[in-house]
Design a protein around this nucleic acid. Structure first.
Lengths: 177, 177
DNA sequence: ACCCATTTTGCAACTTGTTGCATAATGTGC
DNA sequence: GCACATTATGCAACAAGTTGCAAAATGGGT
């Protein structure tokens, strides 16, 4: 039940349309979550139906027509409950280490180049996040909200660093013999 | 499509029953994947039906009765195809950073103790993995399969270290003021 | 005015993951 | 040999995530 809450957060930060949300998920929210536009539209429908958000008033019934949403008080309350809730951590879900482990049984085959490719992709993501940090948080006084956003961004950075260093070691050890 | 392949890998390492697999998922495979026993039983059914694995012969039809599976040649081939496949990395899916970000909007409320709790849980997991490393990989010559398993384990360790350090910093910065 | 690519919203079918419960066999104490 | 917890397998209903496609509006260009 994280997607609706991720959407509520994003909408509180700034009222948006479905597509806009999709784009923001690829950027600032996507360090730890991702969602396709279909997921988002469906969820927006549910959230509207249950009275947590509403579409900003517009005349036409709108299909293929831009539709902005904003959070209602009940939506904010639900988000508060979620923040306060106690919930245990989940283990990650990345198939790559699994594939490496499979390779331990069926042989390395062509996996090392794939590991290197992933290392490069994670490195690119890392660079991008570091760029966000430089661009969006130039030193100086930060609001509480900005401090939290920066913390989350740094979490994303730490994770990507972890991937890069692990994959680098893996390629080294396996590629080198 | 990772679960069936994770099961194939585990069964190749050692033919097992459903419950045994469930336990092994909580241990050596679980660094990057998890599965409940229901998921595993369902998947075992599918894999058997499509001829990738088979139940080791036993007289009685068996309900509530231990049932061992082994991988058939077609299953091994499928696993090879999976290892060779090109597949992009997925972003993580952990709700905690999302909740922190939500707290940036609705206020920190009681989140800091929850962050500390997660830090402790990740730390416990980290200790457990380190214990696995000490116990199952005492220095000396390793087979290729063991080297790969150790690499995967170290990936799990790196990720947990990342969590612990990030959560430590988060608790520090937010708790302290 | 018309064509066409793009933007934006959305449906439907499917796969995967989760939750709660049911049922059969096995082991243990008495 | 009976009661009871434990082990082991499984069903069914649901929730969440994925994939492929469609259709309405918009904004050029000609």
């Amino acid at each position: 039940m994280s997607l609706p809450h991720a959407i509520l957060t994003a909408l509180l930060e700034k009222p948006s349309s479905g597509l806009e949300l999709t784009r923001r998920f690829d950027r600032s929210i996507g360090y730890f979550w991702s969602a396709t536009h279909q997921q988002i539209y469906r969820e927006l429908g549910k959230l509207e139906e249950s009275g947590l958000i509403r579409a900003l008033p517009s005349e036409v019934p709108a299909r293929g027509r831009r539709k902005e949403y904003e959070v209602l008080p009940e939506g904010r309350r639900e988000l508060c409950r979620w923040v306060e809730r106690r919930e245990d951590p989940k283990v990650g879900r990345d198939p790559l280490p699994l594939r490496l482990r499979a390779a331990g049984v069926v042989g390395l085959r062509n996996l090392v180049p794939e590991l290197a490719r992933h290392r490069d992709l994670h490195l690119a993501r890392l660079r991008e996040y570091e760029e966000f940090e430089r661009r969006d948080f130039p030193g100086g006084a930060l609001t509480e909200q900005q401090r939290v956003q920066l913390l989350v961004l740094r979490g994303g950075i730490d994770m990507e660093r972890g991937w890069v260093s692990w994959l680098t070691r893996a390629v080294d050890e396996l590629g080198g013999g």
